[in-house]
Simulated scan of single mutants.
Amino acid sequence: MVNTTLSFVQNMGGGFIIVLLLFSLAYFVLWVYCLVDAIRSNFKDQNMKLIWVLILLFAHGLGPIAYLILGKGSKTT
């Protein structure tokens, strides 16, 4: 079973698939971090919490990156 799986991965361009899986895992971890941070944080305006959670849920491609760049400025310290 392991041999057939390994040969399947090699035939599909095993290196590419492994890199794709690693990037997918890293992106998922980043997304979860941003979502948990947005839920736990206090914002200057409480509506911003809801807005950031919705952005993170529905804008998968750019949501976490936008949150890391723009979201930190709207939090209370």
Rank of each mutant, 00 (worst) to 15 (best):
I65W: 09
L20C: 08
T77I: 02
L30C: 05
L50K: 13
G73M: 05
L22A: 15
L56N: 06
N11Y: 02
L35F: 15
L6D: 11
I51L: 13
Y67K: 01
Y27M: 03
L22V: 15
Y33K: 11
A66T: 07
K75G: 01
A38T: 12
Y27H: 07
L62R: 08
I17P: 02
I51M: 12
S24H: 04
N42D: 13
T76L: 14
T76Q: 09
N42E: 15
L50S: 14
V32F: 13
L35V: 12
V29E: 02
V19H: 00
P64F: 01
A59S: 11
M1I: 13
R40Y: 05
H60A: 11
I55D: 09
V2L: 08
G13T: 10
F28H: 07
K49D: 10
T5K: 07
D45P: 00
F23W: 09
P64L: 03
F58C: 15
M1T: 08
L6K: 11
G73Q: 01
N3V: 09
A26R: 01
F16L: 14
R40Q: 15
V9L: 15
I18L: 14
S7M: 12
S74K: 12
L25H: 03
N3W: 06
W31Q: 08
V2H: 03
I39T: 09
F43I: 07
W52G: 04
M48Q: 10
Y67L: 02
S7R: 13
N11W: 02
G15S: 10
M1P: 02
L30E: 12
K44Q: 08
A38C: 14
I18N: 01
V53A: 11
L54R: 06
T5H: 04
F16C: 03
F23N: 07
F28R: 10
N3C: 05
V36L: 14
V19D: 05
G73L: 05
G71F: 02
F23A: 07
I65M: 11
M12W: 06
Y33Q: 08
H60V: 14
F28I: 12
Y67W: 07
H60I: 15
L20S: 14
F16I: 14
G14Y: 10
L70E: 01
I39V: 13
I17L: 15
K72G: 00
C34V: 06
A66P: 00
V9C: 10
P64D: 01
A26F: 03
Q46K: 11
L57Y: 07
V9D: 00
W52T: 03
V32N: 03
L68V: 08
L62M: 10
L21H: 04
T5Y: 08
H60P: 04
G14Q: 10
L21E: 06
T4A: 12
S41I: 02
G14C: 09
I39Q: 08
M1G: 13
K75V: 03
T5M: 13
L54C: 13
L56Y: 12
Q10I: 04
S7Q: 14
K75A: 00
L21N: 11
I69P: 02
K72L: 01
I55Q: 10
I55W: 06
G63R: 03
P64R: 02
L62T: 12
L56W: 11
V29T: 11
A38S: 09
S7F: 04
V19F: 09
N11T: 10
M48I: 05
Y33M: 06
A26H: 01
A59C: 10
V53L: 15
Y27T: 06
L68I: 07
L25M: 10
G61K: 02
